[in-house]
């Protein structure tokens, strides 16, 4: 089975990713793109209906992990070491979130990833992420 298909199946088998309705829109070659539908259960501010930062974080973290797994030089799985998310604006209530992540550098032990989250206004990102992930080498 090819790696891209494997990564997709792996992530789709994650209970929490399924619970949040996360799905892939693209994956391959150290990059991944995902989508998460708007869900009132994920709201952080009931007055405005804006999604909670934690839900945005979960989608960015998952997309980053998928990008690492989809990197051609990464032999196995991955885990997050550290991830910073900058919240630039509130996500518009009622709109799905879309993310794309790029694994831009990979050493024997560490993968470096950045990602962006957008709603329907893709010119103005909702949040950006920068993170480091483990590279699980062949034992």
């Amino acid at each position: 089975m090819d790696k891209v298909k494997m990564a997709r199946q792996f992530i789709e088998a994650i209970p929490h990713a399924r619970e949040l309705g996360m799905e892939f829109t693209d994956i391959g070659d150290g990059a991944a793109a995902m989508r998460m539908p708007y869900d009132p259960r994920l709201v952080g501010d009931p007055e405005t209906g804006v999604l909670h930062g934690g839900a945005v974080y979960a989608l960015l973290d998952t997309t980053c992990g998928a990008a690492v797994i989809a990197h051609p030089s990464n032999p196995g799985g991955t885990a997050t070491i550290g991830l910073r998310v900058d919240y630039m604006r509130a996500a518009t209530a009622g709109q799905a979130l879309r993310t794309h992540a790029q694994c831009y550098h990979l050493t024997r032990n560490v993968a470096f990833v950045r990602a962006t989250a957008m709603d329907d206004d893709s010119e103005n990102p909702v949040a950006v992420a920068n993170g480091t992930f483990t590279v699980e080498g062949l034992k």
């Binding site: 994650i14 990713a17 909670h52 934690g54 974080y57 979960a58 973290d61 998952t62 997050t80 991830l83």
Partner: peptide, 9 residues
């Protein structure tokens, strides 16, 4: 536990 859940907590 999902890393996103940990971050959310």
């Amino acid at each position: 536990i999902h890393g996103g859940v940990t971050a959310a907590l």
